[in-house]
Amino acid sequence: MVVLWNLSIQKSIGIAIRNHLYLDDGLTVVGFRVCSNTIDPKLVKITTRVDKTSGNDTFTWEVEVYTVSSGVWRSIPIDFPRKSTFFTWGQTFVDGVIYWHAFDNNEMDDGSCNMIISFDLTSKEFEEVLLQDCLVRFNGNLCSSKLKESLVVVKSYYEADKPVCDVWILRDGVPKSFAKLFNIVAPNGSVYSDIHAFRKNGGVIMKIDYIESTSTTLQVWFEAKVTIRSKMSLIREIKNKLTPAQTKIFRGTCFGHWLDINCDDNDPGYIHCILMNQIDRPKNFSINEREICEEPEELWF
């Protein structure tokens, strides 16, 4: 049985599942989401059965959709892109579509063959979303999640004995495909890491296990970009505000050489004129009736 609970109205309903989830010859997975068009909660049940008696695995599927408004299960016709698709419980809902993590079992003799199969709640159609080859053949922890309003796939592995998580995002296009967004290397001393969830602002919540620790730590990373918009005239203000002792300390930092720059307010027209008259070897010439000598230090490029 599946129990749906609406927290806002404090009401729950129970929905019967006719067959067991774990079968001797297969598996039943259930997905739940609310259709954005009808605002009607829906369950999607996929039963995969594998017949091994013929020597070659033969796959059969049964797909049923339950809507709360009707109160009944309805079978729908299926036409999977591959005839050996095996669904797992891993799923993510984005913009009216359920994305399932699946495998192509006939391609698994030399390793995993990962797949992402989408199911549109409105059209009730299945479609395969193309994965990059490094994700298709990855024999490790691969899962899907939602970052803001986009589907992402998280690949967890080890590099130089450190846990690493790569995040791939689904890009719109024809056909749709994934592009690597960023990766996170776990801190020193960690033995396992996994991306637990994404915050609405893009922050990453990671689950990390450390050496000689019996507890699990949740840490948050944020994708950040630093943009600096400044003016050269600020150097003059900094020099005027520093005391002799502070100037000595400042000069000992990596920014100390900025104290030696003689700056003035920018004249865009003057700078543009100089840039348009660049020459290999400076010679005497005039700009706006001002004589410019051949000394290089007088040419600010």
Rank of each mutant, 00 (worst) to 15 (best):
I184W: 00
M206G: 02
Y192L: 05
Y157M: 06
L218K: 02
K176Y: 10
M206S: 09
L218Q: 05
E212P: 05
V220W: 03
A179D: 14
V191S: 12
I195C: 02
W221H: 14
L181I: 10
S215Q: 11
V226T: 15
Y210D: 08
R171E: 15
L181F: 14
V204C: 03
Y210V: 08
H196P: 00
G202M: 12
D194M: 07
N188C: 11
S156C: 07
G189H: 00
S190W: 06
S177R: 13
S190Y: 07
F222P: 03
V204T: 04
I208V: 14
Q219A: 13
D166N: 05
I211A: 15
K162S: 07
F222L: 15
I195A: 01
D194A: 09
D161R: 10
G202I: 13
V164D: 00
I211V: 15
V174L: 14
S215R: 05
A179C: 14
K162M: 09
S193P: 01
V204H: 01
A224F: 13
V185A: 05
N183F: 12
D161C: 10
V185S: 06
N188P: 09
W221N: 05
F198I: 01
Y210M: 11
V185Q: 08
W168Y: 11
E223M: 14
F182G: 08
G202K: 11
V204F: 01
